[in-house]
């Protein structure tokens, strides 16, 4: 270490470049230090305190964690909702986005138009999309119920029934996210060598066999990446749930997720210590997922896929 430091410091030219470089990275490093690095530890500290942002934080040890894990039924409810939401969104999203990617991975006239259309929901803000879907889901006059009405079905209270609201929001989230994963899968598909398919066709393999034996295995790293990134984002889901439950997490807490609970505890009840503890539990889960992701990402780079 010292050796390396001397290498830079003792040579005037290298020293000048090094000091320049430090100057160049200083804004980013300082900023990240203040807004990410320190807050991570502040958050950990706050999770051991009772704090309402007005009076000083009071150290209460593990009481927040004990309350959350042992007494707070809403935490477990939120955890169940979050996991259910993720498990509903991800598989459907992956199946549809991979299907679409295969469908549009060819040279056809007008294919860019379709790709653009499929990508529209991705570039629209979560709030705007939530507003559009609240209108589609409206109980009496929403488009979906109007269409169902043509077949004599309904009306269905998509966002008002406790057993249904979370599924309805998950369906919207799938719709919003397909285009993004489609682009990632498209990049993956274009990385599969064409000769594999040519060889398979010579051997008389059917389309389904080609998918099972070539496309799916070759896309495994991509799928892995899509799953972990997707999980990291659905585990934090907040905006669409807040908007479509009109800020309540209801009906009857049925759309209260961990992300929503953190917001509610911190900024509606001013239980910042407790909210920090919940956030930290979430952090540990996401960090574990990120580590797995990094590991697979590395093996993907080494594997050259």
């Amino acid at each position: 270490m010292l050796e390396s430091w001397r290498y830079f410091w003792n040579n005037p030219g290298r020293r000048r470049v090094m000091l320049m470089a430090y100057l160049f990275i200083a804004p980013v490093v300082l900023y990240v230090f203040v807004t990410s690095f320190i807050p991570m530890f502040t958050s950990l500290y706050l999770s051991f305190t009772r704090y309402n942002a007005l009076s000083a934080a009071k150290w209460i040890g593990l009481a927040n964690y004990r309350d959350i894990l042992l007494r707070d039924t809403l935490f477990w409810r939120a955890l169940r909702n979050t996991v259910q939401y993720s498990l509903e969104v991800l598989p459907v999203n992956i199946a549809l986005s991979l299907g679409l990617a295969i469908l549009i991975n060819r040279k056809l006239r007008g294919i860019t138009l379709f790709r653009t259309l499929y990508y529209l929901p991705v570039v629209t803000s979560a709030i705007a999309v939530s507003m559009i879907w609240m209108w589609l889901y409206e109980r009496n006059l929403g488009l979906i119920n109007l269409l169902l009405d043509q077949f004599g079905i309904g009306p269905v209270d998509w966002l008002g029934k406790p057993g249904l609201a979370l599924h309805s929001i998950a369906a919207m989230r799938v719709w919003k996210g397909i285009g993004w994963n489609m682009v990632i899968y498209l990049a993956g598909l274009q990385g599969i060598p064409q000769y594999l398919y040519e060889a398979a066709m010579l051997d008389g393999a059917s389309t389904w066999q080609q998918f099972r034996k070539i496309t799916w295995p070759m896309l495994k790293p991509v799928t892995y990446y899509v799953i972990t990134m997707g999980l990291i984002s659905t585990l934090q889901a907040f905006t669409e749930l807040y908007a479509m439950s009109r800020g309540t997490g209801g009906p009857l807490d049925s759309t209260t997720t961990i992300g929503f609970l953190i917001y509610q505890q911190a900024f509606q009840y001013y239980e910042m210590g407790k909210a920090s503890a919940i956030a930290f539990i979430l952090f540990v889960a996401i960090f574990a997922l990120s580590l797995i992701n990094v590991k697979f990402f590395q093996s993907r780079v080494e594997g050259g896929v």
């Binding site: 090094m18 320190i38 807050p39 991570m40 502040t42 958050s43 956030a279 960090f287």
Partner: peptide, 26 residues
């Protein structure tokens, strides 16, 4: 070229894994 380049770079990379909900309150 500068001293500590890789270490600083990977620290920055690491902070990207901190979910925004953890840093929100601080």
């Amino acid at each position: 070229e500068f001293f500590g380049k890789n270490a600083i770079f990977f620290l920055l990379l690491g902070t990207m894994m901190i979910p925004s909900q953890v840093t929100l309150i601080p």
